[in-house]
Design a protein around this nucleic acid. Structure first.
Length: 967
RNA sequence: GCAGGGGUGGCCCAGCUUGGUCAAAGGCGCCAGGUUGAGGUCCUGGUCUCGUAGGAGUUCGUGAGUUCAAAUCUCACCCCCUGCACCA
């Protein structure tokens, strides 16, 4: 189909108003959506996968006669649009290329350089793309999260949550660019230039007091090892600075000092060379001992505070550093104390076990296990550190007196807390690697003391949410098992921030902006209201808290300025569409968006209005599962096309078929143009076949019965798959099985007639959900109105015929057997046999086989003796006394591996005779003969006739030159 | 670390919940034949190994186990991927 055809049908659907959700209380409803996209740039070929599923489901439910609503909006909040607009303004090559690719003329560009305009433009563009793919979203729902009415809505939402006590303030460490403001550090690097994979490291600071009143501040990840400190390390030639905080003077490295000022305030003062401190002693907190200050190259002044507390028994790096001291220094430190035991129950893994072998301290053993040659052997020392830290954290139990028997996990918290209680301990957070923002500034971590949070830790709210999650249906089902764990783990989340972002002013303090996740948890409800604004029946300023309370929660009498009847109608509309049947989104939503979506519904609406289903869809990835990045698309590596190029090349239907059939819905698929080619080729084949189904007159009755019966089965399976939202098997039935059935129908001697015509019509309708354009194209003129408005086929339209199916299956088995025998000889190039002589099994064999099957079903091995005893009571079998034992012995072992249920019986003789012409044509035999086994007729020089079994005739293939059978 | 997913025939990807009809669907690639009087949108067959009769052998990350029977169930191990908090 060319693009004109595609446009024609899209136009027809629009004219018919198919996409518009119509409330009809007499009918069922289906309300599902795809989590709205963010405004980070043009869509690529991966984004459409979820829409292909969702649209197919909506089309199916529409064809079932239900009212459907498929809304769409744009999540404009946050930084993505800001970044995109900025890059456009800078004429970033990849943004320029994507604009050109989308056919946006340069004169338009300057208008898109503000974040708001960029977001609005992208939202419209997304909507246009969906239209060109044939996705029927209700455009009267279209909104962006920076629209006035939407803002009023989320402000109501936040105020309501606040009134419920779920919005609180507290302190928080936040990633901030000193110039641009708060920033998201994540792997997608939306806000960043580099360092998106950086982790936040949380150090506990431990004060080691000098006699002169100043304090050396060490940074550690393992405060509980304070009991094993033998010395403090500084780097040789390091310069420390004095950090004045209150009346305290701390000595630390410059880099750490800068961070601490960001996080805790104070100021940096005079420089103090570390050399000044070496060999002086400091007091160890908690234990009260004194230890010396020594130098070692293990200290990196850029990390932590540039001061390290040395615990040689448990820290491999410290042990390695100590080993490099002079022996006098080493002796002065004494043997390092061991602080903990490793539990060996349950047994350690092999790699854990390796860490506990041999003599010495745990650190020494770990160094040995990784074959570390010394402090300079960095990789090995780090591996030892990582493995030992993990082992001790997971399995360790403290043995020092004041913490005896306590797990390392808990000891760590206790020591950190007692240091904090002593008043001089602080936390230091830093990134594991440099993080650079889009504008080239180094990103730091700052403490925000008045941060707003949503109180997801609230036990009561959590309990309700878990309750709501319990009844949720998910695709894949595993997610339903995973979800409660995620909800349990969910802690308070910041819900507002300050900075140049798009979003809604935080209602409790407008100097903050609502954070982008918090403003997108309940929007499914607002879509319904939005339609009234689109129709001009409501105005943004009428959307008051009273209105929302009434419509969504049934609380109060509503907004007085709105006519009561209209308000009641909105409420009714909400109650009609809600609950949401499916929220569909990629797996990145599993741990954040989906949980908060359930949370919010659990708090705001009545239990019967809570969401019903969550559908997690996979992505399209680059080669070897790599994420598609903007670069892949726009830089044109030639691998991943933009959606525009893809539509040009394959058209919407081939893409849609590819999306639903290339993999399981929740699995990622590698983008593979050849597979899309194959999908397109298949559609062309389907188009041809379905067109050829038109006809009149009847075919061979038995063949027609078979064809209709197969269709009965296929429709049953298709409906079942669509009902379970499992589209892959549906695609297989509609685009693979149906063509195969029709081809076989013709191959067996069927011709286009009434039967194929009926099948063709139903098939056209089956094509509708996944490939709607093709369905209209081949259905044009065949239906009264659009295919998209026709009721979905029902299996009851097609009579099921077991005998007809059994006959065809029988014939297929015979063909399989023939091929198995012919294969070796035809590979050798032997000529085709001149004739095929079939021998139909004698009726007594069916009786005997049934008895044997009964034995197998009871778990027994069929015994010759038992069978022969039974033969006594069946006079008609006694004539075969000599054959039966041989038959039982031959067939009994075969029965084990065959289906337990008996195949339906087939009138073999007649079926084979009727297929003679077919077999001659198909295999090129000169002739075919069919004889009952007992009759003695037919050439059988190899004595094959005994091999016949019920449903499996024996045969002899007459080689040219060999004696031919007599007819 | 915590949580989740995964390792299937040259490649992509089903199957595993409910063990047997699984040498394992479908697609791609490849081979042969057909159609078209010459070659990438068609049709048929083949594509683990062996085999002059419908058979046999060895396969579904590795190892062990349960079972008459395991790609499917159990256990251990190895490897890969994803998410982990202001990113929707």
């Amino acid at each position: 189909m060319d693009s004109r055809g595609v446009q024609r049908w899209q136009g027809e659907w629009a004219r018919a108003g198919l996409a518009t959700g119509q409330r009809d209380s007499r009918r069922g409803k289906f309300y599902a959506l795809v989590a709205y996209p963010g405004s980070s740039g043009f869509l690529h070929v991966g984004h459409l996968r979820a829409y292909a599923y969702a649209d197919a489901l909506h089309r199916y439910h529409r064809a079932l006669g239900e009212s459907v609503l498929f809304p769409f909006g744009l999540h404009a909040s946050g930084l993505p649009a800001v970044t995109w607009a900025r890059r456009l303004k800078a004429r970033d090559p990849s943004v320029v290329r994507s604009l050109e690719d989308a056919g946006v003329p340069p004169p338009v560009w300057p208008a898109l350089e503000t974040p708001e305009e960029a977001a609005r433009f992208l939202g419209e563009e997304y909507q246009r793309v969906l239209r060109t793919v044939g996705v029927l979203v209700d455009e009267s729902t279209y909104l962006t999260t920076i629209d006035d009415d939407y803002r009023r809505f989320v402000q109501w939402q936040l105020r309501t949550l606040h009134a419920a006590g779920e919005v609180v303030q507290g302190s928080y460490y936040s990633a901030v660019c000193p110039v641009c403001g708060p920033i998201a550090v994540d792997a997608s690097e939306t806000d960043l230039d580099s360092g998106g994979d950086a982790e936040v490291i949380r150090f506990t600071l431990v004060p080691f007091r000098l006699d002169d009143g100043r304090t050396l501040l060490a940074a550690t990840l393992r405060p509980e090892t304070i009991y094993g400190v033998t010395n403090v390390w500084v780097a040789p030639d390091e310069e420390l600075v004095i950090w004045h905080l209150g009346s305290e003077e701390f000595l630390i490295a410059r880099a750490g000092g800068d961070r601490l000022v960001d996080q805790h305030g104070g100021r940096l003062g005079r420089v103090v060379p570390a050399a000044e401190l070496v060999r002086r002693t400091v007091h160890v907190p908690i234990t009260g001992g004194t230890v010396p200050i020594l130098t070692s190259s293990l200290v990196d002044p850029a990390i932590g505070t540039g001061v390290v507390m040395s615990v040689p028994a448990h820290a491999p790096a410290d042990a390695a550093a100590v080993a490099e001291l002079s022996s006098a220094e080493r002796d002065a430190l004494g043997p390092p104390p061991i602080l903990l035991d490793i539990a060996h129950d349950p047994p350690l893994t092999v790699s854990e076990e390796a860490l506990t072998q041999g003599d010495g301290t745990p650190a020494e053993k770990a160094l040995r296990a990784t074959r570390a040659r010394g402090l300079s052997d960095r990789e090995a020392v780090e591996a030892a550190t990582e493995r030992l830290y993990r082992l001790e954290f997971v399995r360790g139990t403290m043995t020092v007196e004041s913490l005896r028997g306590i797990s390392v996990r808990e000891a760590r918290d206790r020591v950190a807390k007692s240091l904090a209680d002593a008043g001089s301990s602080l936390q230091l957070q830093e990134f594991s690697k440099p993080v650079i923002c889009r504008n080239g500034h180094a990103v730091v971590i700052r403490k925000v003391s008045d941060q707003w949070f949503l109180r997801y830790s609230d036990p009561e709210w959590k309990a309700r949410t878990l309750e709501a999650a319990r009844t949720l249906v998910t695709w894949p089902p595993e997610y339903a098992h995973e979800l409660p764990g995620i909800i349990e783990w969910f802690a308070d989340r910041p819900c507002a921030r300050k900075g140049p972002w798009l979003g809604t002013p935080f209602p409790l303090d407008p100097s903050w902006t609502l954070e982008p996740i918090a403003d997108s948890t309940f929007y499914m409800a607002f879509f319904i209201v939005r339609r009234f604004l689109a129709a001009g029946r409501l105005r943004p300023e009428q959307l008051t808290d009273a209105f929302f309370d009434h419509v969504f929660r049934g609380v109060g009498s509503g907004e007085p300025s709105i006519p009561a009847g209209l308000q009641a109608e909105v409420r009714e509309e909400f109650l009609y569409w809600y609950p949401l049947d499916i929220n569909m989104g990629g797996h990145e939503h599993k741990s954040v968006h989906f949980p908060v979506f359930v949370y919010t519904h659990a708090r705001l609406v009545a239990p019967e209005l809570r969401p019903r289903g969550i559908y997690v869809n996979g992505w399209i990835t680059g080669p070897s599962g790599t994420k598609i990045s903007k670069k892949d698309v726009s830089v044109g590596k030639g691998r991943i096309p933009s959606i525009y190029r893809a539509l040009e090349r394959w058209g919407p239907d081939a893409l849609r078929l590819y999306y639903v059939s290339a993999a399981s819905p929740s699995a990622d698929v590698e983008w593979n143009p050849e597979t899309v080619d194959a999908a397109l080729a298949r559609l062309l084949e389907v188009e041809r076949l379905v067109r050829e189904t038109r006809g009149q007159g009847r075919g061979p009755p038995e063949l027609d019965a078979w064809l209709l019966s197969r269709m009965h089965q296929i429709i049953t399976r298709v409906r079942d798959g669509l009902g379970r939202a499992d589209l892959r098997p549906v695609a297989e039935e509609v685009y693979v099985t149906v063509p195969a059935v029709i081809r076989r129908y013709y191959a067996r001697g069927g011709v286009a007639g009434e039967a194929t015509d009926k099948v063709g019509r139903a098939w056209t309708l089956l094509l509708g959900p996944i490939t709607p354009h093709l369905a209209e194209e081949v259905g044009d003129g065949r239906f009264d109105g659009l295919v998209a408005t026709q009721p979905f086929p029902s299996p009851s339209d097609f009579p099921s015929s077991e005998p007809a199916e059994a006959r065809e299956e029988y014939l297929q088995r015979v063909e399989d057997d023939l091929r198995a025998v012919l294969r070796p000889s035809s590979e050798r190039g032997d000529p085709t046999p001149g004739a095929a002589i079939f021998f139909i099994a004698s009726p007594w064999k069916a009786v005997v086989e049934r008895w044997m099957r009964e034995a197998v079903a009871r778990g027994e091995t069929p015994s010759v003796r038992a069978i022969m005893e039974r033969v006594q009571t069946h006079p008609e079998l006694t004539g075969y006394r000599t054959e039966i034992p041989k038959y039982v012995q031959r067939v009994a072992p075969l029965l084990r591996s065959e289906p337990a249920i008996e195949p339906p019986s087939v009138e073999e003789d007649g079926t084979l005779r009727a297929a003679e012409a077919y077999l001659v044509r198909r295999f090129g035999f000169g002739s075919v003969g069919v004889y009952p086994e007992d009759e003695g007729a037919g050439a059988d020089p190899l004595g094959r006739r005994d091999r016949s079994r019920p449903g499996k005739p024996a045969f002899y293939l007459v080689r040219p030159g060999a004696p031919k059978g007599t007819d």
